[in-house]
Structures are given as structure tokens and as C-alpha cells.
Nucleic acid binder design. Structure first.
Length: 476
RNA sequence: GGCGCGUUGGCGGAGCAGUUACGCAGCGGUCUGCAAAACCGCGUAGACGGGUGCAACUCCCGUACGUGCCUCCA
């Protein structure tokens, strides 16, 4: 499989450290407020990545952290802790806020979006001891220095600091704003922050340096190492994390282990809303619940996301979601044909049928091939459209049921859609009405026929008449 | 201010130096008891100005606009 590696700025062939096994780490959400649709974007792409790797036979071991402490309002390690700030705003403790939004995030990820749950889903606060231990190793090796508000990593000790982002550290130094934090270099970052002397934090722990809490980047370095080992195969995250968070993870991890932290760095671009960045000040932040409230399905949202490549910038509007919902509806109606076909083929068209079946089965390979090329979901969706459109102008007798089922199952398996469950068979009652309608049509009783069609439509099913009989589909 | 990126038809979104992307929506027609579907056709895409090519949406330069990071962010 080829993937674009941010570290080298090239598409490269994935070569896992251990044959047939892929260790994957994904930065998780900071659970201080309601997640929005942009938060979920990356996780939808990484879900497909995991699905493809598994379909290719890899044993994927995946870790995702939950940031429930230490993420400050500003990435330069000043400002408040987001958790503590959120807690004050809601009149709860930081622990309660973490619980509340962790629960919401899990519900949205695994119930609403149907993402595959990581093997290790780890809150940062579960690994405080390990983080202190890790920071101790950094301290012992001389990477840390103390200032008033915490222990900081001296980035000037590394020759290759900022290699992921290709940071111009000297330029940053020269162009730095007046820095009141007392850091030696603008890129230095907190590994351990002290509790403010006058304030009792909800979340704080004793450490060799003083009571406080871990720096934001520490958790990912530690949790990745503890669950997956010193070097992982793929580290994913949003592009916003390249210059600071991931850069600092690399600095810490490689300083401790002396080994590469991750062989592949894979980053997803962002999605805008109405062509603008999502921001609270613009009031254009949408949540999954907003999408549901507008009457759209989660699969339509996923289709919208997958219809652009993970590395290109996207846009969200209700019109675009509408188009995705329509496309999904078309796919559902193709999938529903499986209830109306059989594996027994008409003898006179046996050869034709075989050809049709073969081309449907070949589709799975085509899908995998597209996804294999840097997770090209755009081409993947196009291949699905092409495969389904082969069913357009042929009679039901010519469609091989089990190969259609396999195609639909492959789509669900690889893209994480739920076409199978979204396309139930119609009730026996409707089936009887359809048969009855076909009978009165033979008698040219058009009035009765139209009455039956309306009756069927009341149950959300439309019927259309073709040369090979009536075909039902879901009404819009 | 520093460093990037983008600009494709009504909307979304690809590839490609010389053939229809594709999806969603729209219009005309054929077919049909009607409807739907399907099929056929249509709308003359490539921000603007130069340049290099026999040939550029596709390469190079500039302009305009938009946008990202540098400061919270997926």
C-alpha cells in the first residue's frame, strides 16, 4: 500500500516493521467540549485506512488517546488548561467534564458514525505515572530545564528538531513575538507544568519537580510507546498538528528511545463550512446532531467526507450534503435489488449472466486497488458508481444475486458504510401488494393498479414497471 | 509582517500536454396506460495576463482573488 508520508513529502510503499502487522497511532480528541463535524473528518479516513489494511490481511493494532488533561488554551504552553476552563464554564470539576465529553465522543464515534473501536483507547490521566517516568528519562538525559511555571524541553539540543514540519527554527527565533513565558527558545515546550501557587487544580499530581500536570505532547509519546512500542508504523492526525504537537512528540520520543518514533506520518486536511473556516465566532460550527436534525444520515455525511481526498481541503454546505444523500439513496436502491434477484439464472442468457457476475466480483479488487493508492476514496466512489450503473439497463433475471451481495458487503467492509442494514427487504404485506398490482396490470385495470401503487408508496416504497416486471425501491 | 496552498461547468470533485472524468442537480427527446427508471441529446468548464511547446485546463512567470499556518483548532 502506498501512503503519502508527511515526513518525506512523498508517497511511499508501506513497509511495516513486522511482516503482516501494522501499529497505528492516532491522536485523539481533547474532551473539553462538544465535538463538531470537522473533528470527525480524520477519524473517518483513518477508519477506512484500518479497514483497507485489514482487508489486505494485516493485523492492525491501533491506539488512540483521549486528551483529558494538559491541553492548554495556547499551544505555546501559556493560558489555561482547556479541561479546567471548560469545567469552570459548566460548573463542574475537570474530571466531570472529561467524563461527559468522553461519553459523548464515544457515542458519536462508535454508535453514530460506526467507526471501528481502537484496540487501545486510553485517557491521558490513566498514564500519569508513566508520563512522569518518561519525563524523568528526559530530565536525566539533560533535555529539560526549569522555569517558574514548569519543566521545559530544550529544543536547541536537537539537530533535527522540527524536521517533520521543516521548521525554520532560526527564522522562528528571529520572528518570534515578545515571549513572556521565559522559555529559552520559542520552540521549547512544557513537559511538566506546575500548578499555579495560588490555585488548587481539579487535576494535579505530585512529581519529582513539583505538583502539577503533564504537558500536552507527553501523553501521545508515552501512550504510543507503552501500547505499541518504541517505533510505530503509522502516526495519523490533523494537519494542524504538524508544526507543534507532532513535532514535539517526535522530539520527546526520539530523545528517550534513540529510535525513530514513527515511520509514516499521515495527515488529513480540514473541512470548511460555506467556504470559511469553522469558528465559534462565525457561528458556523456544526455537530453530527445538527446533521441528524436536518434529516440527513450519518452515511451521507461519510460519503461527503469520502468524496474528497483526505489530503485536500474540503467544504461543507447543506447542498453538498444533499448531493451526498442523493447519491447514497441511489446506492441503496441498487443494493436493494439483491432482494429482487436470484442465483438461478435464465438459461438463454447464461453466458451474459456469467459475464455480469464476473465484472461485479472484479469490482472488489478495483476498490482495493484504488484505496491502495494513498487511500484514494474519490476514485473508489467512482468505481462503485460504475459498478452499480452496470445494473441499470438489465432485467432482474440477469443479475446474479450473490455477486451483488458480495459487492455491497465489500463496500460496507472497506468504507464503513451500512448499505446492508440500510436496505432491508420489504414486508410480506408489500410483496403481496406488488404481486396483486402486477396481476391487475395484466388485466389492464389501471385504476386499481394506481391505487395499489399509492398504497405501497404510503409505506415508503415506490414501484416502477420494467420489461422484466415490477421493481421496487425506497421512496425519497 | 513571515512561510505555504488554492482558483475546473449550477454545486461538489478528479485525471491528463493532444479523446466523455465521475457524482448531484437542470433542460429537450425516445420509450411507457400513466408514472418512474432506462436510453439519446444539450448546456460550448478550466480566475486573468504573458511565456515555452506542433499542441496547455494540464509546464513556467506575473497579477487578482480566496485561503492555511505562524496564535486555539481535526
Amino acid at each position: 500500500m502506498k501512503i503519502y508520508n508527511t515526513m518525506t513529502r512523498k508517497k511511499e510503499e508501506l513497509m511495516p516493521l513486522e511482516a503482516n502487522k501494522v501499529r497505528l497511532y492516532t491522536c485523539g480528541l481533547t474532551v473539553y467540549s462538544q465535538p463538531h463535524i470537522g473533528n470527525w473528518l480524520g477519524y473517518i479516513y483513518w477508519d477506512v485506512l484500518v479497514r483497507v489494511l485489514r482487508a489486505k490481511g494485516y493485523d492492525v493494532e491501533r491506539t488512540q488517546n483521549i486528551t483529558d488533561v494538559g491541553h492548554l488554551v495556547s499551544d505555546d504552553d501559556s493560558g489555561e488548561d482547556k479541561m479546567e476552563k471548560g469545567a469552570r464554564a459548566e460548573g463542574m470539576t475537570a474530571w466531570d467534564v472529561a467524563k461527559k465529553y468522553s461519553d459523548i465522543a464515544e457515542h458519536e464515534a462508535y454508535d453514530l458514525l460506526g467507526l471501528i473501536r481502537p484496540d487501545h483507547l486510553v485517557p491521558a490521566t490513566d498514564y500519569i505515572d508513566k508520563q512522569i517516568q518518561f519525563a524523568g528519562e528526559l530530565d536525566k538525559k539533560g533535555y529539560l530545564y526549569r522555569i517558574d511555571d514548569g519543566m521545559y524541553f530544550d529544543t536547541s539540543k536537537l539537530d533535527d528538531y522540527g524536521k517533520l514540519a521543516r521548521l525554520d527554527t532560526e527564522g522562528l527565533q528571529a520572528g518570534a513575538r515578545v515571549d513572556m513565558t521565559g522559555k529559552k527558545h520559542p520552540t521549547d515546550f512544557a513537559v511538566w507544568k506546575f500548578s499555579p501557587p495560588s490555585q488548587k487544580r481539579d487535576m494535579e499530581w505530585d512529581s519529582p519537580w513539583g505538583t502539577g500536570f503533564p504537558g500536552w505532547h507527553l501523553e501521545c509519546s508515552v501512550i504510543a510507546r507503552e501500547t505499541l512500542g518504541d517505533t510505530i508504523d503509522i502516526h495519523t492526525g490533523g494537519i494542524d498538528h504538524i508544526p507543534v504537537h507532532h513535532t514535539n512528540e517526535i522530539a520527546q520520543s526520539e530523545s528517550v528511545t534513540g529510535k525513530p518514533f514513527a515511520n509514516f506520518w499521515v495527515h488529513n486536511n480540514h473541512i470548511k463550512v460555506d467556504g470559511q473556516k469553522m469558528a465559534k465566532s462565525l457561528g458556523n460550527i456544526y455537530t453530527l446532531q445538527d446533521i441528524i436534525d436536518h434529516g440527513y444520515s450519518m452515511d451521507a455525511f461519510k460519503l461527503l467526507v469520502l468524496s474528497k481526498h483526505y489530503r485536500t481541503e474540503g467544504n461543507f454546505t447543506w447542498d453538498i450534503l444533499d448531493a451526498a444523500e442523493n447519491r447514497l439513496m441511489n446506492w441503496r436502491n441498487y443494493a436493494a435489488l439483491r432482494h429482487q434477484t436470484h442465483d438461478t439464472l435464465r438459461n438463454d442468457d447464461e453466458k451474459d449472466n456469467d459475464d455480469k457476475s464476473i465484472s461485479l466480483l472484479a469490482t472488489r479488487h478495483a476498490l482495493l486497488e484504488a484505496l491502495n493508492d494513498d487511500l484514494d476514496t474519490v476514485t473508489t466512489l467512482m468505481i462503485i458508481d460504475e459498478a452499480f450503473s452496470k445494473l441499470d439497463n438489465i432485467s432482474l433475471d440477469h443479475i446474479h444475486q450473490s455477486s451483488l451481495v458480495e459487492l455491497v458487503e465489500s463496500i460496507d467492509e472497506l468504507l464503513g458504510l451500512e448499505l446492508i442494514t440500510l436496505t432491508p427487504d420489504v414486508s410480506d404485506d408489500i410483496k403481496r401488494l406488488i404481486i396483486e398490482r402486477e396481476r391487475v396490470r395484466d388485466e389492464k385495470d389501471w385504476q386499481r393498479s394506481d391505487e395499489l401503487r399509492d398504497k405501497i408508496l404510503e409505506q415508503g416504497i415506490t414501484v416502477r414497471d420494467t420489461q422484466s416486471g415490477s421493481i421496487w425501491s425506497y421512496a425519497k
